[in-house]
């Protein structure tokens, strides 16, 4: 018996939230869905709405979804907290 049209999705909290859509800006063109080589996005069942991030853990953080997006600011790629790098003003070190 092969699986049918329904797919199960775990309700567990994802470990990262790599792709954030701005609902005001996204026009639901799904270009990001089509460019993602890992195929982590699926089109929204409601036409014109932002795609759904079905497999956030599989994101490779390449940024091609943002590069392909026709609207500046509709998609934000975000590294998980443990991967966010720190920088400081050089001046603050020199004046120690």
């Amino acid at each position: 018996m092969m699986p049918d049209k329904k797919i199960c999705m775990p309700s567990e909290m994802p470990a990262a939230n790599p792709i954030v859509y701005n609902k005001e800006k996204c026009i639901g063109c799904n270009r990001c869905v089509e460019i993602c080589q890992v195929d982590i996005l699926i089109p929204n069942s409601e036409k014109g709405k932002p795609p759904m991030v079905l497999y956030p853990g599989e994101c490779w953080y390449c940024g091609c979804c943002v590069m392909e997006c026709p609207l500046e600011g509709a998609i934000t790629l975000r590294h998980p907290l443990m991967n966010q790098v720190h920088w400081v003003a050089k001046e603050s070190l020199m004046n120690k």
Binding site: W60, Y61, C62, G63, V66, M67, L77, R78, H79, V85, H86, W87, V88, A89, K90, E91, L93
Partner: peptide, 25 residues
């Protein structure tokens, strides 16, 4: 370079990183 245009260059710049002033850990 691969995986830098958005995740590094754009995101760091948007968050205020200035290569003339800041040093990166």
């Amino acid at each position: 370079e691969g995986k830098t245009k958005i995740p590094i260059y754009k995101n760091y710049k948007d968050a205020g990183f200035d290569p003339e002033k800041h040093v990166i850990q």
